[in-house]
Amino acid sequence: MGEVLHIKGLTAGALTGLNLTLTAGECLALTGPRGVGKSTLLRGIAGLAPTKAEAMRFQARDLLTLDAAARARAGIALCAEGGIFATLTVAENLALGARLARPGPWTPKRVWALFPDLRTLGHRPAARISGGQAQMLTLGRALLANPALLLVDEVTTGLSPLVAGQIHQVLDVLASEGMALIVAGALPNGRHRSLNLEAA
């Protein structure tokens, strides 16, 4: 499996001189106390937070020359807590993810099979779904783009252990299918490696 992400000497927010390499099918868990820069790093890779770096490559493309929209089109997806559009319906939020729809295994049918709530609640404004459903929506929406790199920011915060466990299982499946993942927050036992940003 090839290299998906390569970062050298990255400075963003509180982070300085961070180096990171990620290959396809690999899952990296970012750990460290609140405020250490986990979200900033993910937003920086997605292009939403200002970053400086000596080198930043995604699948051999130079990320430093791409804005957030171009990074999304290239195959980087960010799902973050609170990232849903509350004034749009559930189905419309999903349709935004499907705009990019790169070739890949994730179709609306597969997302609905994974999260049946997203189908039954399709016409409901996203402002009126539960926290757990909102997390499923951000994840399902990101998957519809079939990203090569999925950045997951705290999507299990505040969820019941059952739902959180379900989402962690999904993340395992994604990595086993060859997606590269970076997850902010510790993960339960699974095939992933951890990076403590406090020590990095």
Binding site: G47, G83, E92, L96
Partner: peptide
């Protein structure tokens, strides 16, 4: 959809290209 999403959160629509 993109217009309405932009009205709500202009920065976040970049995530959808």
């Amino acid at each position: 959809r993109v217009i309405r999403a932009t009205a709500e959160n202009a920065r976040a629509v970049a995530l959808f290209g």
